[in-house]
């Protein structure tokens, strides 16, 4: 469904992404992991059309993504790391605005709003201003805003930062449900346990390159079992792949 071929992006002398390729299939969740500055957000930004790659291509189905107004962008939903919401507007008004960006109007828009609010369990707060919401509620609404136009591919950039366990669990349930519906999910995170719980496959990026693109079992197999016979954690595998030196 989503194919990334040899993406590269530089900013003057800084190579943000050197050479990144991977695929994402329908009903699959791929965890995109990497240390700070590894190139995860730039990769997601290129897939979402926010940044133009210097080289490489993003294929949605068989269609190469190109230009701001490419209709294929409708098949992508973005859930940014920031709480990209208008605090002074109600949840409903926020969603009405974001839906209209995809040309949704009238009954179809209202139906989409009701559907996503129900999914994230915020239907009863639709008329409240976002500034009155808790951090977890804002995160759920942030997710809902990315789903309004019913995209096939959802790009989630650290969608659980700063939320309590209850809200995080609710978001996981939402993502499981979306997977069941056949959505393809690309999920960036620093929380290894989230990737372990959700991801069908894990792509590890470091210094702008893909250094691993495997299933969880394959990654675990890279590290020998401990003396007690227990398998290594994903964090141990991640540190083995990316090293222990501190990153900016």
């Amino acid at each position: 469904m989503l194919k990334i071929n040899n993406l590269r992006k530089t900013y003057k002398d800084l190579v943000a992404v050197s050479d990144v390729s991977f695929t994402l299939e329908r009903g699959q969740l791929v965890g995109l992991l990497g240390p700070n500055g590894a190139g995860k957000t730039t990769t997601v930004s290129m897939i979402a059309g926010l940044v133009t790659p210097d080289r490489g291509e993003v294929l949605i189905g068989d269609h190469r993504l190109s230009g701001d107004t490419d209709p294929v962008k409708r098949r992508i939903g973005l859930v940014p790391q920031d709480l990209a919401l208008y605090d002074e507007l109600t949840a409903h008004d926020n969603l009405r605005f974001f839906g209209a960006l995809y040309d949704l109007t009238g009954a179809a828009l209202e139906q989409s709003i009701a559907s996503v609010l129900e999914l994230v369990e915020l239907s009863d707060r639709a008329s409240d201003r976002v500034k009155t919401f808790s951090g977890g509620m804002k995160r759920r609404l942030n997710l809902a805003a990315g789903l309004l136009h019913d995209p096939d591919i959802l790009l989630l950039d650290e969608p659980t930062v700063g939320v309590d366990p209850q809200s995080r669990n609710a978001i996981f349930d939402n993502l499981e449900a979306l997977k069941q519906r056949g959505k393809a999910l690309l999920y960036t995170t620093h929380y290894m346990e989230e990737a372990e719980r959700l991801a069908d496959r894990i792509v590890v990026i470091d210094h702008g390159n893909v250094i691993a693109n495997e299933t969880l079992a394959e990654l675990h197999a890279r590290v020998p079992a401990g003396p007690d016979g227990g398998r290594a954690t994903l964090e141990t595998v991640f540190l083995m792949l990316t090293g222990r030196s501190l990153r900016d």
Partner: peptide, 15 residues
């Protein structure tokens, strides 16, 4: 700064 332009730019809308 709040990331709202990411949403706007990810929609199929011209500059």
């Amino acid at each position: 700064q709040k990331g709202l332009w990411k949403r706007l730019r990810s929609a199929p809308i011209s500059r």
